[in-house]
Design a protein around this nucleic acid. Structure first.
Lengths: 192, 192
DNA sequence: AGATAGATTGTCAAATATGATAATTTACGA
DNA sequence: TCGTAAATTATCATATTTGACAATCTATCT
């Protein structure tokens, strides 16, 4: 009987806008005004659908972790048994594949972790989870490799991926991006 | 006859505080109020010694680039002819050596580059300079290696260094940091 | 049509940020 | 001691941000 709820649509609309602001202005710099403007909504609608500034951050972190885990699981399922590691690298560094958006949002969260112990904890476990997933893929495609070697290679791939994404706010740097991809591949080859 | 000028002392005092704020709050989140409080000075003193918010950012970028180049040159001079690359990696990943502070400041500048084309340009050339320096060190210690291999390895080392530093706001993650260092070393070994 | 629950908009007060200028204090040389 | 130039403090007007609440509008059901 009541008017149908748009809560979910509004929430995603707001969180999408918030993420764009996070990338440009960071956690501290993303005012509710800016988010509302970016979303094309009145500021009071943020309050109505999500709440105050802290609740907005919390909601964004929740969604980020969910989405990140979902997308990682999906990727792991899609990887072939043969040559999984190279395939993973191709996906990570494919401009079409992984969304640079997510990495930049994580950068904002990590930077803000210095003032926010809770956030720091959540992002630490996220980082470890991400890293462990890469290790697992490496183990799959190189069952014989030593544990330490797998961790080292996984760290290197992770770092090159993170860095390539982190530099995007400066604009396209194709040469460097390609070099990071090559470095990841070169590390993977050391497991053969 | 006048009172002695403290302009230089005050400038460094303010810029030091501003960098600490940049690391915690980012460019957009670093209000003059916050900087003044962090520096233990009245806000009007920022205006007196440096100027408005834009001028503060400009001054910080200027100092960052100068300091970064100076420190890089100094490092390059200090490196031995033999095993320069491994020595460089030791220095980059030595908690005592490179100042994590500088990397975090550069992270803030890079993130803010999305809204600031001028800043983006300056940070792009800085990134390229940093990268080229690593390539040069690699070439010195492995004169026989192919150009492309040198670039790839240098990119990997750079990425692992950047990433290791970027994660510090989340708190100490020794295991991951060690893994990034190992990855850099493993990449260097591929040049042998 | 009328009731209902939710969306949407409007408005307020308090807190904070900024730029600017005036007033005051301080250290040094003459 | 006294003038001077600089540091430092005080104050102001303005704009932005935030949280809160009231008022209005709108889609659906009965």
């Amino acid at each position: 009987m009541p008017r149908p709820s748009l809560k979910q649509e509004r929430r995603t609309q707001i969180l999408d806008a918030y993420e764009r602001c996070l990338i440009r202005f960071g956690v501290e710099g993303s005012s509710l005004e800016a988010v509302a403007k970016e979303a094309g909504l009145a500021r009071a609608l943020i309050r109505h659908n999500i709440g105050n500034r802290d609740q907005l951050l919390e909601a964004a972190v929740d969604r980020f972790l969910l989405e990140s885990n979902r997308s990682m699981e999906q990727l792991l399922d899609a990887l072939p048994a043969e040559g999984a590691l190279v395939c993973l690298i191709d996906w990570l560094f494919d401009p079409q594949g992984s969304d640079p958006h997510l990495s930049l949002v994580s950068d904002a969260f990590i930077a803000a972790s210095a003032n926010n112990p809770d956030l720091a904890g959540r992002m630490r476990t996220w980082t470890h989870t991400f890293f462990d997933s890469i290790v697992e893929v490496a183990r799959r495609s190189h069952p014989g490799a030593e544990k330490e070697a797998l961790r080292t290679v996984a760290a290197g791939i992770t770092a090159n991926y993170f860095t390539a994404e982190s530099l995007t706010p400066m604009g396209p740097m194709r040469d460097l991006r390609a070099a990071f991809r090559s470095a990841a591949l070169r590390l993977a080859e050391t497991l053969d």
